[in-house]
Design a protein around this nucleic acid. Structure first.
Lengths: 199, 199, 199, 199
DNA sequence: GATGAATGAGGATTCATTCAT
DNA sequence: TATGAATGAATCCTCATTCAT
């Protein structure tokens, strides 16, 4: 039930995944614990389903359109076109960030978070390979993982700030991403990226 | 007791901070739970103290020397000089990474992790300000936070891989850091940084 | 619904009565839990009804015929004539054995199992009294209960073995029953019982 | 703690093993659930430990003496010498009977009950083999299992009755055992067993 | 100083049963 | 008549913390 997933999103954001209790989720949703377990076999399943729904939401609202158009843009504009809505989406759905990071020690992605992780990573790898068609797969993975790590870290930075600060962090994270990735792509559209060159 | 902190480090690495139980730490240390609470008032205090000790360890073993010498190096060499030992230190003390990230939802630094966080951030801000003496404090903070975020994310990447892959990620993370920070410093030592320019 | 009782039989055999959940029975029957409760007021009632149906099945398939003919047989042949089909019936309907024994501590027959218990016991008492027409009722009950206990215990033994072993146990249980009961009946057909006399 | 095992024994007798809740055991023992789990890792362990303690108790109080002397007795006296104290012990420790029978469907001995089962069965097999030294192992097992089944069933019968009835059942069960086993032993002490021959 | 038994609220999960549709 | 979501107390078990010894 959407009601339960909404409640789960709220509780995950408040307490983190590990500390979120199924009873708290049920209470937040205004149902009994038993009801929760009629829809989800366990806590993991809630996270998985919530991740899936958020992924879908993102795709429906922005992702699909982006994938259709953004790849034709120069790299810096593409970054804006992708990351700005992505930041906005995460601000409106802060549970997404919780799910992107796993439950406990980072780097220890457990099954329930593998899916959302893999989905985003695959998409990212696709984008990068479209800019770097000749790179060997190992390097693609390397770059994608590094970019994704920077994105995740930057996302937290953006989400934990408000107002002008948030915007400053958003710009800074995009700048970092741009500078990291831009030299990889020996294109001639460098002039259009002037804005990221100056601090 | 060092014995207790060692045990805590081990258990934190194995289970993450949240899932680590004080009883497990006591057992690992070979003492009773009561003994643990004679040295630390609660679980938080263990994390804080462990963080403090690791910070000291780092400082004693490399940090102090680095701070004395590295600032005179060209920027790219400074990055190598700082990050390589830092990665190595984290590999030998994986609890450090656990403490750098908090317990639950990222961005929600709770009190026990504030100290270690702040300590590292302050030091980083110092380094950056030495390269950017004229920048306003707000920008310094912005850059330091962003750099720190990239470092933390990159550290996880490095720690979760082994052998050749680990080295590749270490290089890639340093590359990302370098590319992010280098344009900020309008120095003339750019030619020496050639290695980071080509993918 | 027969469908529900079949499902209950299956689940009772798989999980035992206590661990069998009404939801599992409904699922096995391919109906919703609500439907189950339209036919049975509670779990007990399912057991009772299933017991009744199995009793009927037994009576229809063998019991009736047996009662008509077996009493004329010499005692050892009667035992074969009764116990062999009874063992076979229990092998084909293993739920019967589950229902014969109660849910928890043995000897603590709860209401739902009282019926099936009493029904079998009454029949057994009838048989015994036909061989011992002059015995006082108390002794009849004593013998019937003891015989029934041996039968139940032996039945488990038979049902938990397969193939040749099963047959060996069936024979052994019949031997025990015979030896226990035979001296009670001072008949002259002893010579026909030779097979049970030698180990 | 003995306190906990006593409480467990009481609750097991009241509710059976499956329905006995660890919280109920703790409450009965006058401690909190957490305390229980400091002594036993789980419910199974309680049953195992309780079984072990009862087995020891039996051995210490009667079993050891019996094994030293009873095998020299004629068979019928041996039965009295063994079964009477055994019935008495079970009456004083009714949890023993609960543990002898498993949790759910009979014949499905689960691990926690395997030990107590095996221990008794081994001892029984020993006794029988001392009377039947030339029997093949398979037959020994067959006889031991059958005898044990009869004993367990008879024990329930004895335990569920009181006063004169109990004695009558005890005698009857011993009679059944005697009659089952006696023909196996071609001894010449048959005359001493006259009491079991007449109903 | 060290112990380790004791706590008890809280965790995830189950299940017999109900009731609005 | 059948559904299946809803219930909520109860299940086993955990854990940070305390305190008498």
């Amino acid at each position: 039930m959407a009601q339960l997933l909404d409640a789960a999103a709220k509780v995950f954001c408040t307490s983190g995944y590990t500390s979120a209790s199924t009873n708290a989720i049920a209470r937040e949703a205004g149902v009994s614990p038993g009801t929760l377990y009629q829809f989800f076999p366990n806590k993991e399943a809630i996270a998985i389903e919530l991740g899936g729904r958020l992924l879908e939401d993102w795709h429906r609202s922005h992702g699909a359109a982006l994938e259709a158009t953004s790849l034709d843009l120069p790299f810096d504009q593409m970054l804006d076109a992708v990351l700005d809505p992505l930041f906005a989406f995460n601000y409106e759905n802060p549970a997404f960030a919780v799910l992107i990071h796993g439950p406990g020690a980072p780097g220890q992605i457990t099954q329930e978070f593998e899916a959302i992780h893999a989905s985003l990573l695959t998409r990212l790898e696709g984008v990068i390979s479209s800019y770097l068609p000749d790179a060997p797969p190992a390097q693609l993975t390397l770059i994608a993982n590094t970019s994704f790590a920077i994105f995740k870290a930057g996302l937290d930075l953006v989400l934990t700030h408000e107002g002008t600060e948030r915007e400053a962090y958003a710009t800074e994270v995009k700048r970092a991403m741009y500078r990291y990735l831009e030299p990889l792509f020996p294109e001639d559209h460098t002039e259009s990226c002037a804005s990221f060159h100056t601090p």
